[in-house]
Amino acid sequence: MTQKKKIIEIKNLHASIDGKEILKGLTLTINAGEVHAIMGPNGAGKSTLASVLAGREEYEVTEGEVLFDGVNLLELSPEERAREGLFLAFQYPIEIPGVSNINFLRTALNEIREHKGETPISAKEFMALVREKSKIVELDAKLASRSVNEGFSGGEKKKNEIFQMAMLNPKLAILDETDSGLDIDALRIVANGVNKLRSDENAIMVITHYQRLLDYIVPDFVHVLYDGKIVKTGGKDLALELEEKGYDWIKHDLVNN
């Protein structure tokens, strides 16, 4: 078997906000073609990890290193990270009144293309792409022309995040609690969408509190994040075990070892 390409390597990552340390030495490598689930109790640092990787300025990285496809991620601005192929599906997608989804995505896509030295996409190609990709998440075509996330239901917002992911075709997609607030039908659609986007070239990090999503997006690895560190790693069965026994089991385990 050939060595898989490393998409992201996180080494001993420490990060804090307002002087309080949240990530306390997190290490994780994700290879191309893999889906990793990050699970953990509330306050373990799951969303902090997503925010730090995306480059939110409120967080200060105090120690450690992150290589993204060989590039030092931590030195890049948020938009450069995005252009390099890092995509964050927000837990709470932001509403931007008056800015249409189409205009928003076209601007994003063209800036990413420019970054790669490609020419801007033509209007015709772009619309074709919109039509094609919106099917992936069964997104109502009408939503594409509405303002970004404005007046969208919770489910539509999450679908829209995956639709954007499909449009921008990232190397690494971080899904931050994408399942929160979704009913079963919407969850199924969103998960199916993500599955369609899985390939040998990209990787996905699924951050979730519940196992439920992982029935649909089957992970290759499940990591348990606890107190700012990965304390346990296993296959998809670990998620089931967590669901059954709860996070206290992990705590208990940690204390005993």
């Binding site: 995306a54 480059g55 601005s77 948020p78 938009e79 990270r81 995005a82 252009r83 995509f87 964050l88 927000f90 997608p93 932001i94 931007i96 009144p97 008056g98 800015v99 205009n103 928003f104 995505l105 601007t107 994003a108 800036e111 990413i112 970054h115 303002s147 970004v148 954007q164 921008l168």
Partner: peptide, 19 residues
Amino acid sequence: YCLQRGISEEKAISMIVNG
């Protein structure tokens, strides 16, 4: 949110203001 989609700050502001 715009930055995370690869849009520059200047352009993001322009978009938001026009919106």
